Computed example of a mutant assay.
Amino acid sequence: MREFTDVAPAPVRQVLLKLHSRCNIACDYCYVYQHADQSWRDRPRVMSRSTIDLAAARIAEHAGKRDLPFLSVVLHGGEPLLAGPDTIDYVVRAVRGAVTSHTKLAFGVQTNGLLLDDTYLALFARHRIRVGVSLDGPEAANDRHRRFADGRGTHEGAARALRRLNEAKHRPLFGGILCTVDVTNDPVEVYHHLLEFEPPEIDFLLPHGNWDNPPPARVPDQGRTPYADWLVPIFDRWYESPAPESRVRLFESLVSLLLGGPGGIEGLGLGRVDLVTVETDGTLEQGDALKTVAPGAPATGLHVRWNSFDEYLEHPGARARQAGLAGLGAECRRCPLVEVCGGGHYAHRFRALTGFDNPSVYCADLAALVRHAARRVAADLPPGPPAA
């Protein structure tokens, strides 16, 4: 791996706490359980209170040392609600109690929604925890991949959770919907179904894969763009809406970057990745998507007991994900779309022979989507001054 030591790393601003290492459903595309890295098998099911205390101390240490105005803590898994209300309550209290600086803390939880009940809703309201729910579309679309281990679908339970979150008294907790793209589904049907729940935000996620293990429908054929073909009709409906019903993070980031602004998601633009993951055993890891690359790919050898977040930021993997243009392969650095595309998601660039010095396995799709959005945006911009 190349080293990038000439620029000081940006601080951690997102901490993903793995509260539970198991899940109550068995999605067939899951990057935690269905891919190369199987380290979850050897980890504690639930993060212990002693590990929570250590993580809280590291969060406080980093927030104070870096004088952070804002820091986000995401409760994750597996399925984080399996950890139980008492554990989640303890986590929030421990982190808030440890952070004595002026740092504003925001808590969120990403869940499949099946365990969301009155107890959790009251807990989340008390601690101001925003709730994101995963749903891939209507029943047939969602239940193709998001199923229980015995084959039963999960759409009904997820939809029930989303309806609860959209009730007036729970609406402030509603963070949004995470949808993994499946190109065999009708994109407009999926989009309209998600909008029925009136989410404040929708996040479309490309299924994780790389050049050695391509995602579904993404064969190494640069003449085909199945994922762009799926996203473009949704982009057009979102872009043409006078007041979009819901934010779409992917599209907002894309338009912002086209207009010279910042991106907002990992996988677009050249912004620095400011995330660290704390596993249930207290180990510090890079992003979960690297679990699709190889056994041990996300590992850093660091632990909250002995290592600070600043030490994590010095790890070669963390450095590479903050290196911007310099962290890309030669082909990407030459590309005219690189300021917007950013080389795609780091994990999607992997090839065993060349590591991460490759374009994204979604290169053709990203290029097609960026060019389509650029045409739409350019058509709406006022004409520039006449040439001198």
Results as ranks from 00 to 15, higher is better:
V278W: 00
L75W: 04
H348S: 15
G78T: 01
R126P: 13
Q110M: 12
L325E: 11
G223A: 09
D143Y: 00
P244A: 00
V340L: 08
S246W: 00
P295E: 11
V340N: 08
R333E: 15
V131Y: 01
T280P: 12
G343M: 08
E189W: 00
H345W: 05
A374W: 01
A228K: 00
Q222K: 10
L369G: 07
P11V: 01
Y191Q: 08
L71K: 04
E245M: 07
W40N: 14
L284D: 04
A243P: 10
D42L: 12
A26D: 15
E245I: 04
G296W: 02
A388I: 09
P187D: 08
I52E: 11
T87A: 13
D143G: 09
A158C: 11
A347Y: 03
G223W: 00
P207T: 04
A158V: 04
L205F: 07
S134F: 00
T119M: 12
C332N: 10
P80F: 00
E314C: 08
A8Q: 11
L254Y: 03
L381D: 13
G355C: 08
G176M: 12
D37R: 03
E139M: 06
L173K: 04
H303W: 05
P85L: 06
L313V: 03
A140Y: 01
Q34A: 09
R13G: 11
F148Q: 13
V12M: 04
T100N: 10
A83Y: 02
L250P: 12
L173I: 06
R128K: 13
L68G: 13
R237A: 07
G343K: 10
R371Q: 15
H345E: 14
S48M: 02
G344W: 02
A63H: 11
P215M: 01
Q14F: 06
A299Q: 01
V74Y: 07
S256W: 03
R41A: 14
G327T: 00
W306F: 10
L162P: 11
R376P: 13
G267P: 05
P262R: 06
G301V: 03
D150K: 04
D118E: 15
V133N: 02
D86P: 04
A374F: 00
K65D: 15
H102V: 07
Y362K: 05
D89Q: 11
N358C: 05
T283D: 09
